[in-house]
């Protein structure tokens, strides 16, 4: 029965020592330990959260970058295309202009040649007339050097002339 009857003395010391132990440990051990533990927990939590946020940010940056890159690529394609187009139009217009200029020059040249020709022909006509008159004069002089020739001509001319 002794086993089951609590002793007053031991209860007294148990209360005294346990309470002392509790307050000493609370002040000099648990406070610090529990604070350190919860601090570390918070630290780990915030570190994990930060890692998560950084990862999200990185992903966002990456997608932004890709977007920027694809935009740049589009822009580049557009610029190249425009450049090509303008080059083509430039070349075409230059060709057209060149052709037109060539045609103009040719037609001018033709006109000038025509004018020259006309002038030349006119001049030649005049020269030919003068020359033929001179030749005729010279011929006539030579032909009509004797009286007989003169008379035959006159008679020929008279016979030709029809008096109607």
């Amino acid at each position: 029965m002794e086993l089951l009857t609590p002793g007053i003395g031991l209860i007294f010391w148990q209360i005294l020592i346990f309470l002392t132990l509790f307050f000493v440990l609370k002040k000099f051990a648990w406070g610090g330990i529990l604070k350190a533990l919860s601090d570390r927990e918070n630290e780990i939590d915030s570190a994990l959260r930060m890692a998560e946020e950084t990862r999200a940010e990185m992903a966002k940056l990456k997608s932004d970058n890709e977007k920027l890159l694809s935009e740049a690529r589009l822009e580049r394609d557009k610029i190249i295309k425009e450049a090509k187009e303008s080059a083509v139009t430039l070349i075409t217009s230059a060709q057209e202009k060149a052709v037109a200029e060539g045609n103009r020059i040719i037609s001018d040249a033709r006109e000038a040649i025509q004018n020259e020709k006309t002038a030349m022909v006119a001049m030649m006509k005049k020269d030919v007339a003068t020359l033929s008159i001179e030749i005729a004069e010279k011929l006539l002089r030579k032909e009509l050097l004797d009286k007989k020739a003169q008379q035959s001509l006159v008679s020929e001319l008279i016979s030709e002339a029809k008096l109607n």
Partner: peptide
């Protein structure tokens, strides 16, 4: 009881110092 209390105080103040 006293020895255990002293032991516990020694152990856990040491642990607390460890955290510091």
């Amino acid at each position: 009881l006293l020895i255990s209390a002293i032991l516990l105080i020694l152990i856990f103040t040491a642990v607390n110092r460890g955290y510091k």
